[in-house]
Simulated assay, not measured.
Amino acid sequence: MMANLFSSFDPSSIFSLSLNWLSSTLMFLIMPMIFWMIPSRLIMIWLTLIFSLHKEFKILIKKISYKGSTLIFSNLLIFILINNFMGLFPYVFTCSSHLNFTLYLSIPLWFSFMIFGWFKNTMHSLAHLVPQGAPNTLLPLLVIIETTSNIIRPGTLAIRLTANMIAGHLLITLLSNTGPHMSSFMLSILISTQLILLTLESAVAIIQSYVFSILVTLYSSEVN
């Protein structure tokens, strides 16, 4: 019996060492040695994925010189995606369900965009606070609204990813705890339901990593 609803997300530890972030390094154990040594089919799949993401982010940035921006956002998507999938394995803590983890991703990116935009494209950043064609009487209110929405962007990015990852994992955990008290027939239904939820969580892991990276790309395109 759980002590509370969120006890399944309590940090695990061995010898007083926190294991919360261990899942971020487990991907290096999954990748075979051939991935690091010579070209292989796995590398071809990886390059195909990187090139596809590059084309996707290139359309959003709308700049002739990308200077590695698409590579940064592609790696960000893959990093979040791997961490999301790691949480689907038994006894593995999902880093992306921790608010500290998602805030450490969103705040530095957003802060760097703000510094770049306000120092290099000051007039463009000021004009972005006022929607085109807005009446003069509403300009002070619109500036306050746009400034507030801009400030809360890293928080909404982090909370969106964290909430979506916690919701599915929490539902799977709660349903799993009812298994020992069920009959064989109900247990078979529960297993089928868990498989459906696991498939849904796999889709959520992909979608949320894509949404996070796409929104970060859109925020960077606004300051250019």
Results as ranks from 00 to 15, higher is better:
Ser18Phe: 00
His124Asp: 15
Glu201Trp: 05
Ser209Met: 02
Ile145Glu: 06
Lys58Arg: 13
Leu105Cys: 09
Lys63Asn: 07
Leu142His: 01
Ser13Trp: 00
Gly117Lys: 02
Asn83Lys: 05
Ala158Met: 02
Asn224Ala: 07
Thr178Met: 11
Ser220Leu: 13
Ile196Gln: 15
Ala205Gln: 10
Thr178Lys: 14
Ile80Pro: 08
Ser40Gln: 06
Tyr104Ala: 11
Ile50Asp: 12
Ser74Ile: 04
Leu109Ser: 06
Leu129Gln: 06
Ile43Asp: 13
Pro39Trp: 00
Ile78Leu: 12
Pro11Asn: 12
Ser16Thr: 00
Leu42Cys: 04
Met186Ser: 12
Leu105Ala: 03
Ile145Cys: 07
Ser12Val: 01
Trp110Cys: 10
Thr193Ser: 14
Leu71Asp: 04
Val223Cys: 14
Trp110His: 08
Trp36Arg: 07
Phe85Ser: 09
Tyr91Asp: 03
Val216Asp: 12
Gly179His: 11
His54Asp: 15
Lys67Arg: 01
Asn177Gly: 10
Leu29Lys: 08
Tyr219Ser: 10
Ser221Met: 04
Met1Val: 04
Leu171Val: 02
Ala203Tyr: 01
Ser149Leu: 04
Ser106Met: 03
Asn75Asp: 02
Lys63Pro: 01
Met165His: 10
Ala203Met: 11
Gly68Met: 08
Ser112Asn: 07
Ser8Arg: 12
Leu174Ala: 10
Asn224His: 04
Met123Val: 10
Thr162Ala: 15
Ile78Tyr: 03
Tyr66Ile: 02
Pro90Glu: 05
Leu19Tyr: 09
Ile45Gln: 15
Thr178Cys: 12
Ile38Tyr: 09
Met123Gly: 14
Met186Asn: 12
Met182Arg: 14
Phe93Ile: 08
Lys58Leu: 06
Pro32Gln: 03
Ile72His: 06
Glu222Arg: 15
Leu17Phe: 13
Ile59Cys: 04
Met86Phe: 06
Ser18Asn: 15
Trp110Pro: 03
Leu103Val: 02
Thr70Glu: 08
Ile144Ser: 02
Thr217Phe: 01
Leu141Ala: 09
His128Ser: 13
Ser220Ala: 15
Ser13Phe: 05
Ala127Ser: 11
Ser183Leu: 07
Thr156Phe: 15
Leu126Trp: 06
Ser184Pro: 00
Thr137His: 06
Val204Glu: 08
Lys67Ala: 04
Ile59Asp: 10
Met165Phe: 08
Ile38Phe: 11
Leu175Phe: 11
Phe93Asn: 09
Thr156Tyr: 15
Met182His: 12
Met86His: 02
Arg160Gly: 10
Ile43Glu: 12
His128Cys: 10
Thr148Asn: 04
Ile144Ala: 09
Met2Ala: 15
